[in-house]
Amino acid sequence: MATTKKFMYLNRRSSFGTVYAIESLEVVLIAAAFEQDVSLAFIDDGVYQIVEGQNTDGIGMKNFSKTFHALGDYDINKLYVSKESLEERGLSESDIMPLVYEDEDDDWAEKSSIKVVSNDELKAIMSEQDVCLSF
């Protein structure tokens, strides 16, 4: 399959409460095998999905937040986070998990996959996509 398209996964909901977040991550992991140009966006309550220090002991749910650390190994290293969504929730970049990838074009230097952007910047990035999947 030679076609490469730009796929963006929009994560708009928090990790628990509904199934959307984990089933979105399942799509992203499968999509990695298709060698497309993949990026993720975290907006609205979706920013909670990548907050550091999640603990699900009290609710009987699987803590899948650790899975986000694997994305870098699948060449998924463009994780856009809405600056406004963070601020509206009293969060900042320092509350987000340190998600990284190794840049093969830069002697495998470890780099951050997290890119905090304004909603205007995100709008421009979204308009460049071929496929936007919204969860």
Binding site: M1, T3, K5, F7, E26, V27, I30, A31, A33, F34, Q36, D130, V131, L133
Partner: peptide, 11 residues
């Protein structure tokens, strides 16, 4: 499987 969704997005 979910691959069918990605394939649909590509094709």
């Amino acid at each position: 499987g979910l691959g069918q969704l990605i394939e649909a997005g590509i094709q």
